[in-house]
């Protein structure tokens, strides 16, 4: 058994190094309690629905979410809008389709199977409209940033006047949490910017948390089933390990006397 402790020790050593290197950026992010962390972590449905509202009303004018479809909004483990709500949401967007029999492209109301409508035709158009900076696609944004949800959550609330001695170019803003502190996105959130359907008070903090939760789900739509399955799998493995351990003891007891 002693060997196991050695193995565990080496394991923790190796992965400890790895974790260190990942946490190389030294800024302390703002902390909040995320309902989806931990062994049984689940999304807060109403936060996801509010977050979707923030995304549509604020972010989606510049940021695409090309890997999401309207049907995802009604899927289990997500915001869980009802099927008819999701259909209504989809129908409120104009989707380009075609070509029809005459070879022309046309627009029609969105369907559940459609992907989220993109704000710009392509990356170049997005850059042209945003002073050369491409507003990144938000589908996997949380997983694409080292600090994950804490980083996004902090960034949304990290706008400040630049410290003395730092001059900013036109269209560049100062953000405490941005890598290099210079960001091309202006501060978007202000208290009461959206009017939440469920009556929640739309403070900047609340909106940041909601939209970040929504982005986490967007990046990891199967997080809930992953956590559930993981718990079952590990409990199962532990039970089997115990059974195999005793079977092993029994089998080896046949020769143990001779050892």
């Amino acid at each position: 058994m002693k060997n196991f402790y050695t193995i565990l020790f080496l394991l923790s050593l190796i992965f400890g190094f790895q974790l260190n290197t990942n946490a190389a950026e030294k800024v302390e992010y703002l902390k909040t309690d995320w309902s989806f962390k931990g062994l049984f972590g689940k999304f807060d449905r109403s936060a996801l629905q509010r977050g979707y509202q923030v995304y549509t009303e604020v972010c989606s004018s510049c940021h695409s979410m090309k890997y999401l479809s309207y049907r995802n909004l009604a899927e289990k483990g997500g915001p869980e809008f009802t099927e008819s709500q999701a259909k209504a949401i989809a129908a409120s967007f104009e989707v380009k389709d075609g070509p029809n029999e005459d070879g022309d492209m046309f627009t029609r109301p969105g369907k559940l199977s459609d992907k989220f409508v993109m704000p710009y035709e392509n990356v170049k158009a997005a850059q042209a409209a945003n002073g050369g900076a491409y507003p990144p696609d938000m589908s996997v944004l949380v997983k694409a940033r080292g600090g994950g949800v804490d980083y996004i959550y902090s960034l949304l609330q990290g706008y400040e006047d630049p410290p003395v001695g730092i001059t900013l170019d036109e269209g560049v803003y100062y953000n405490k949490y941005m890598y290099g502190n210079k960001i091309k996105m202006a501060n978007q959130l202000s208290d009461g910017l959206v009017e939440y359907a469920d009556g929640t008070n739309a403070t900047v903090e609340q909106m940041s948390k909601d939209v970040t939760t929504f982005l986490m789900w967007a990046a990891e739509p199967h997080l809930e089933s992953r956590h559930q399955m993981g718990f079952k799998a590990i409990v199962y493995l532990i039970i089997l390990t115990i059974l195999v351990y005793f079977s092993m003891k029994r089998i080896w007891s046949r020769i143990e006397t001779k050892v």
Binding site: F15, L19, N22, A144, G146, R226, F231, A233
Partner: peptide, 15 residues
């Protein structure tokens, strides 16, 4: 299993 189900991206790189 712990890595797969609870920290699946920790050994990868965000970029």
């Amino acid at each position: 299993a712990f890595f797969v189900f609870y920290t699946p991206n920790i050994l990868g790189h965000a970029d």
